[in-house]
């Protein structure tokens, strides 16, 4: 890496420019499976945040002790430990949510975003930067989960975080709660995200062109 990014840049890139879902298209399995309500999205986001920050911290601290040949196995052991801790904690504290999320909490271990951050970032940077990067990536992931879960709960249930917004006469869009609704909404959100990014690029190009003319 040419220069060390500032912590702010490092955080914000995970949220937007390198958003794990909308730009890198990682972690699709929990993204599509558990986002039928905003609450489920939030719990999944928090669990992922906990796992990613914990593993990034450990991997960055221990990076000189981890032999390269077995690093992937060691990363997975570290991630799996944090996932198990998250799994039991949710089961004890929020049994109803755990029932809904079901197998997808243990499956956080298979979220390639988490292993990807260890390999691509935490193992090559200092502890502070690794934690900031993990926080940014998890925040970006949670932002995407909440965007998807919010839309799906709003249309599929007429509520947000369980609070009814449309009154009793609301006709629920059943498909939004079901897997096809997840796919359709995710596709439309990707479209929206790319459209905004394209608009921004076009705008910047125009600004640059005007500046050249001025010179």
């Amino acid at each position: 890496m040419a220069r060390e990014q500032s912590s702010y840049e490092s955080f914000i890139k995970g949220l937007w420019r390198e958003n794990p879902v909308f730009v890198q298209v990682l972690g699709m399995c929990p993204m599509l499976a558990v986002t039928n309500t905003a609450l489920n999205s939030l719990v999944m986001g928090l669990a992922t945040l906990f796992v990613l920050m914990g593993s990034s911290f450990l991997v960055a601290s221990l990076k000189h002790l981890i032999p390269k040949q077995v690093r992937i196995s060691l990363y997975i052991i570290i991630i799996a430990t944090f996932v198990t801790i998250a799994d039991y904690t949710i089961l004890a504290l929020l049994p109803a949510v755990h029932k809904e999320l079901g197998a997808f909490i243990p499956l956080i271990v298979a979220n390639c975003m988490i292993l990807g951050r260890q390999e691509a970032f935490a193992s090559r940077h200092g502890v502070r930067m690794a934690v900031v990067d993990a926080a940014g990536m998890s925040a970006g992931f949670m932002f995407a989960l909440l965007a998807l879960g919010g839309v799906r709960e709003l249309l599929g249930n007429g509520s947000l975080f369980g609070v009814d917004l449309f009154g009793p006469g609301f006709e629920p869009w059943v498909i939004m709660i079901l897997p096809p609704g997840g796919f359709i909404t995710l596709g439309l959100l990707l479209l929206l995200f790319n459209w905004i990014a394209a608009r921004k690029r076009a705008f910047l190009a125009e600004v640059a062109a005007t500046e050249r003319e001025m010179l």
Binding site: P67, L74, T81, I85
Partner: peptide, 19 residues
């Protein structure tokens, strides 16, 4: 290599048992 994996597994096992 085997030792480091075993050690990590041991620590991880302790953590899981504790939780």
């Amino acid at each position: 290599l085997a030792l480091s994996l075993a050690f990590a597994g041991f620590i991880s096992g302790l953590a899981i048992i504790a939780i």
